[in-house]
């Protein structure tokens, strides 16, 4: 399954997209409602990161989101989310902090995404734009139905 969205940074578009995203995630994760909310949170934070740091709150620029759901050999669901922006490419790939100070404000969003997702990276895309990649492996429970 592949889901594709293009949104701007306008508040109403983001809110509408995030509602649809949560519906999709809840369908994908089955009984693991908390996991759906956690992944939803990560996508929200990734979009917020682009708006704040890459687009500098220019809300008219596009953000492309793609969600791929596949299965591995053990029938675990693999959720890959990629979010592309058209902002100035970052100089170096962003590595989330492994630890965070008690009262530290900066990079806490990145830290949280890295704790929730199995893989997380932000890399430049050539001369124009960046890509945020996130991956989560959803372990199949006995009562889950394989997607294929």
């Amino acid at each position: 399954m592949i889901f594709k969205f293009t949104i701007s940074g306008k508040e109403e578009e983001i809110v509408e997209f995030e509602k649809e995203l949560l519906d999709i995630l809840l369908r994908i994760v089955g009984d693991e409602e908390m996991v759906a909310h956690e992944i939803h949170f990560c996508v929200h934070e990734a979009i917020l990161n682009i708006l704040q740091h890459t687009y500098k709150w220019n809300v008219n620029l596009p953000i492309d989101i793609r969600i791929d759901v596949t299965e591995d050999a053990k029938s675990n669901k693999i959720l890959k989310i990629s979010i592309k922006d058209l902002g100035p490419p970052i100089e170096n790939p962003i590595i989330p902090p492994k630890q965070i100070e008690k009262f530290q404000l900066r990079k806490r969003g990145l830290y949280m995404i890295s704790k929730i997702m199995d893989d997380f990276s932000i890399e430049p895309l050539g001369k124009n734009g960046n890509i945020t990649n996130m991956k989560k492996v959803l372990t199949l429970k006995n009562n889950d139905v394989p997607i294929i």
């Binding site: 908390m34 949170f41 934070e45 009262f103 404000l105 806490r108 969003g109 949280m112």
Partner: peptide, 29 residues
């Protein structure tokens, strides 16, 4: 989200300077 958490961290930082903590009541999982 992290913006809301940021507000709470600022409150907690301020409280910590006065050797106390921010009190929280929350039961949403």
């Amino acid at each position: 989200d992290s913006s809301g958490i940021g507000v709470i961290i600022r409150l907690a930082t301020n409280a910590s300077k006065h050797n106390t903590k921010i009190i929280t009541i929350c039961n949403n999982a």
